[in-house]
Amino acid sequence: MKRLLVVLVLAGVLALFVYALSREQTLASPLVGKPAPAFSMPLFAADSTVTLEKLRGTPVVLNFWASWCLSCRDEAKVLEAGWQRYGDDVAFVGIAVNDEDRPAKDFIAQYGKTYHLGSDVDGSVAVDYGLYGVPETFFIGPDGTILSRYIGPLTTADLDQRIAELEAGVTGEAGGDPSRVQPLSIEGP
């Protein structure tokens, strides 16, 4: 009986440690199911600004990226092809994080990106969305509610599935590949 008690206590302690270690690796965002934080972002390509408010009524694919991010290269063409395929039915917005003007514009030109692309220069949008790294993508319903978050580079199949969930107004499961996210841990000057 005593041994059983000791084993149970040890198992409980171990379970707590596993829980503590695993919760930092979770894909889920507390923002899912909540209103998406508003943002206003000037665009690279035109002398205009995109706001989340202006996109109300349209499902939004909000992607955070950076020109220095290797995984972002893998999904760059997937996002552009998605934008071309869905047209005005789905708004695609790309926000460059911790990036500089020239490399970001070169990246856009290299991958032929044509959707709404701007820069979060002061990092405020990244913090508002609880970002860890890039790439990360939030799927926002027409009413402005975050329906899912995907971390890591998107594949065409993942993108199509998430957009189908967006159009159906269904909250999606957290998904992605955390090992392919490049954290925003670069040290400043």
Partner: peptide, 8 residues
Amino acid sequence: GTAAPAAG
């Protein structure tokens, strides 16, 4: 969130 006044 409001991003910077000029993109990039």
